[in-house]
């Protein structure tokens, strides 16, 4: 099962490899990973996505918690949350297709970030499914290059009536 795990950790050398070591040491792959500083520059927030047996992921989550440099661990599966990825796509855009590409990008609320006579580079954000949908639609037109960020996730605010 897919697990999106959010980790707050001290912003120090070596910390990231302690985190990833817990996965690789068990033969688990990390599908995506995103890290950056929080408001406090000494603290980073890391979001990672991994697939695996719930029991093993739970064990890894506990082990993550045990790392001296880790402040907080949340397995998003246990909460309601929003998640986003961003993708940059360079797509073939010649006379016949330029308008159609723009239309598709517009539907997905993407932005053109680079233009040449033969291609557009576009930026799109969304959850995993939306990003996949864009890719599927643009593929027949001709994707030349694609770069994706990892997932970032945030728990939803608790709604009280």
């Amino acid at each position: 099962m897919k697990h999106t795990i959010s980790v707050l950790l001290q912003n120090k050398p070596g910390v990231l490899s302690r985190v990833t070591g817990l996965f690789s040491g068990r033969g688990y792959n990390i599908e995506s990973l995103c890290v950056n500083k929080t408001l406090d520059p000494n603290v980073s927030c890391l979001t990672l996505v991994s697939y695996g047996a719930d029991q093993i992921i739970e064990q890894i989550t506990k082990q993550l918690h045990k790392l001296i440099d880790v402040i907080k661990v949340t397995d998003m599966a246990e909460t309601e949350y929003v998640e986003r990825e961003m993708v940059l796509i360079r797509i073939k855009a010649e006379a016949g297709t330029r308008a159609e590409v723009l239309r598709i990008i517009d539907i997905f609320r993407g932005k053109v970030v680079d233009v040449s006579s033969k291609s557009y580079a576009v930026e799109i954000t969304g959850d995993e499914e939306k990003i996949q949908a864009v890719i599927d639609i643009l593929k027949p037109i001709g994707i030349q290059e694609i770069v994706k960020t990892g997932t970032i996730a945030m728990a939803r605010a608790r709604k009280t009536l």
């Binding site: 050398p13 070596g14 490899s17 302690r18 070591g21 040491g25 001296i68």
Partner: peptide, 14 residues
């Protein structure tokens, strides 16, 4: 050695 012993120490420092 910090890299080598990362998985077999409770914690380590350089």
């Amino acid at each position: 050695i910090v890299g080598i012993t990362r998985p077999c120490t409770k914690h380590n420092y350089l």
